[in-house]
Design a binder for these strands. Structure first.
Lengths: 341, 341
DNA sequence: CTGTTAGCGCTTTCAC
DNA sequence: GTGAAAGCGCTAACAG
């Protein structure tokens, strides 16, 4: 049987309470006593039973998820995953609250962030809009010793404790490689479709995409980026227009959301043009389009993984526990027609 | 606060012990009492605190992993993951033992399986070799009420409770799609390299690969399958010979292990031939080859996920608990140079 | 068949 | 500073 607090207590010749104080780095223990206990812990090779500890603590973690509004399947999916996490609340001793803010709106995000001060909050997860004032608001929370995790889109340069999302530069490069290879040496134009250059994830995807394209597929020319604000309607219009305006387009990279609109436009205008299309986020729409051949590859971040990782990291940080970063890495999934889950 | 067993007991007007009996479907409760308790559980919306239950049970799960010998990185990785799981034993209340058997050797596997009867075993995970006698041995274990999970390679038709591995037909199709698209309409021969047609995973990959190739890329011709027994040395020889013997080969699909040998042969013989290469399993060797351009795509099954899933399923089954199949699905990962983890 | 009671490993008052 | 003892939610003897 593995050693328990009793074993440490016996070995160190102290009581349970003292062992607990040392274990949880609480004050009220003489330095010599502390060292004696720490030695015993090391000697015996004690590992704390987290489940038992949580049971005894009875602690609950009030967490806040700040999510942007947005009528696209990815956002719907993200909300669904957070709600899913809410149903697990009783088991995981969390108490999750969703705060909605308008998308791509730094002041609104700042207001939501600042409103959290003084509230009973054990941790905050937010889909960051990249702006200095948001960075500052996040830093204020961190200063107030509230754990903060960015979700889906990061906020580099801020003091956030963790980013639960994919490496978006790598995502852009991956898209470029697939598009380039699938096009097999053909020459032509590529239309790039983004949500907004205001969010870091989109900027980074574009950056990675453009860099690899330039380096390895010089025969492909990138057209100016279209910004569809992750909205299916706007996106549809932009794409239709672009396709109608040029016959040199042979590929499309959609690095944001709102692909429902893209797919509609492709079916209306792009049919039979043999376009090669790579998009982000697996949703019911992109899945169907992959199946019927409208889309050739989907890059995906698993929103469920991201939410669960955010919760784990927030809880661990709230406990001052640290986490294994490698274990929390979010993978970039590639889907073609044949490996759909 | 969420309801506890006490709340149920009070609501149903019975004692804790009775509640526990109902909760754990143990005998010794009158049908009417049972129904009363079940009603209370439903009304109150009780959810069992698994951590507390495990703490009280103090149960440990002696699990056996039957793994084939094999000097290839995938097997090394699999062993490493099982050993990893062993280090978590104290936390997860498991007690994992590894039993080694020669690869591709049904009688040896049967012997190992049969030896388990009468031992204190809460569950068995095995990398199955596909043979009727193995199927029978697995069924004997299941009959003896021992949970059995196949790992990496399945044993269809047997009574195993679960398969912790990827869909290998889909894997083969995915490989065909990538190879076909990457080759961009070129005409030529494809060399297919397998470990052994004795294991189901390899047979299924080949099946999926051949089917999609025939259906969608008729300009590509499949050469007779080379069987390298997942051994780098044998593999290297076979590939060198094949490449030397024909100039029409433009692509390679390696659906088994032993890719170290393949890579060596490609570097020696294939250099500058512009071969497109798709292989299975991300290892240090295939990763390096992906980076330096020798390989174009790697299909991967995450051995860590598989082992953890097997452990979860085995424990749940031992508890008679059932599991959410969808949550235990093992994904097929696609890696290109740019989305390596 | 049903109830009482003593833990599981850890935390947390409240005394000393 | 340190210790004794109660209790988190659940299970498992052991009585009745």
């Amino acid at each position: 049987m593995r050693p328990t607090v009793y074993d440490i207590a016996a070995a160190a010749g102290v009581s349970l309470a003292t062992v607990d104080r040392v274990l949880n780095q609480r004050p009220g223990v003489r330095i010599v006593t502390r060292e004696k206990v720490e030695a015993a812990i090391r000697d015996i090779g004690y590992v704390r039973d987290v489940a038992a500890a949580n049971l005894a603590k009875g602690r609950v973690y009030p967490l806040v998820f700040i999510l942007p509004t947005g009528d696209n399947s990815f956002m719907h999916g993200l909300y669904a995953e957070v709600r899913q996490a809410m149903t697990r609340s009783s088991l995981e001793r969390t108490e999750i609250r969703i705060v909605q803010v308008p998308a791509f709106d730094p002041p609104a995000l700042v207001a939501a962030l600042d409103a959290l001060h003084g509230q009973d909050v054990a941790g905050v997860a937010l889909v960051a809009t990249d702006a200095p004032e948001v960075r500052a608001a996040v830093d204020r929370l961190v200063d107030a010793r509230i754990p903060v995790v960015t979700l889906v889109s990061d906020l580099t340069g801020s003091a956030r404790h963790h980013y639960a999302g994919v490496d978006n530069i790598a995502a852009g490069r991956t898209a470029a490689r697939l598009l380039g290879r699938f096009l097999g040496g053909r020459k032509g134009d590529i239309t790039v479709l983004a949500g907004s250059m205001l969010v870091r994830d989109h900027r980074e995807r574009l950056e990675g995409f453009a860099a690899l394209m330039a380096a390895e597929f010089p025969q492909l020319r990138l057209l100016p980026v279209l910004e569809g604000r992750d909205d299916p309607e706007i996106t549809s219009g932009l794409v239709s227009e672009a396709l109608a305006g040029s016959n040199d387009i042979i590929g499309v990279y959609s690095l944001g959301a709102g692909n429902r609109g893209l797919i509609r436009a492709l079916k209306a205008t792009g049919q039979g043009r043999g376009l090669t299309v790579v998009v982000h986020e697996l949703t019911e729409h992109t899945r169907a389009a992959l199946q019927d051949g409208t889309i050739d590859a989907v890059l995906n971040q698993d929103a469920g993984h991201e939410v669960r990782s955010a919760v784990r990291v927030l809880k661990a940080t709230a406990d001052g526990q640290g986490f294994i970063a490698g274990q929390e890495r979010i993978r970039l999934d590639i889907f073609v027609k044949d490996n759909l889950p």
